[in-house]
Simulated assay, not measured.
Amino acid sequence: MATSTSTATTATQRAQRVSEAIHSGEMEGLTVTPAGRADADEYIAGHIDSDELVARARARYGLD
């Protein structure tokens, strides 16, 4: 039987990753801005991928 691997994630998995990232930041004293949360929501919904999510955050803070 052949098996395949997929790197696709479900909305539930993406939501869990975002929740963990937010929690990690909060443990360090950081907060997520409304713009950052909007980007995260787009990622969770599957409208953007993780590369785009990171690119937006880096651009927002001048880290490009």
Rank of each mutant, 00 (worst) to 15 (best):
D64R: 13
S4I: 09
D41K: 09
A45L: 12
Y43C: 06
I44T: 05
E26W: 04
A11F: 00
R17G: 01
G29Y: 11
T9Q: 12
I48H: 06
I48G: 03
Y43V: 12
T31C: 00
L30D: 09
I48M: 05
L53C: 03
E26D: 08
A11Y: 00
A55C: 01
I48S: 03
I22S: 02
G36T: 14
L53Q: 10
A21V: 05
T7Y: 06
A55M: 03
R56A: 04
A59V: 06
T7G: 05
A15T: 06
L63H: 03
G29E: 13
E28Q: 13
I22A: 05
R58H: 03
D51Q: 08
E20Q: 14
P34T: 10
A55R: 15
A40K: 01
D41E: 15
A35S: 11
A15E: 12
A45W: 10
R60F: 02
R37A: 04
A55N: 12
G29Q: 11
I22E: 11
G46Y: 04
T3P: 00
A59H: 06
R56I: 02
I22Q: 13
A35Y: 07
T9I: 06
H47I: 00
G25L: 13
R58C: 05
S6G: 08
I22L: 04
T7K: 09
R60M: 03
E42F: 00
A21G: 02
L63V: 08
T33L: 10
E28C: 02
H47T: 07
I22N: 01
M1N: 04
R17Y: 09
H23Q: 15
R58M: 12
A38W: 04
A11S: 13
Y43D: 09
T12S: 11
A2D: 08
A8V: 11
I48R: 05
A2L: 08
S19P: 01
G36A: 15
G46Q: 05
A15P: 02
E26C: 01
I44D: 05
L30Q: 12
R14A: 13
A21S: 14
G25H: 05
E42G: 00
A57S: 08
R56S: 03
M1K: 06
D51V: 07
T33H: 03
A45V: 01
S50Y: 14
R37H: 04
A2P: 15
P34Q: 12
T5E: 11
Y61N: 08
G46N: 04
R17P: 00
A15C: 03
A8I: 07
S4L: 09
T5C: 01
E28N: 09
M27C: 01
Y61P: 00
E52W: 02
S24Y: 11
A59G: 02
A21E: 12
E20T: 08
D64K: 10
R17F: 07
A45S: 10
E42S: 12
Y43G: 09
V18A: 03
D49Y: 09
A8P: 01
A40L: 10
T7Q: 11
V32P: 00
D49N: 15
L63T: 06
T3K: 11
S50A: 14
A2V: 10
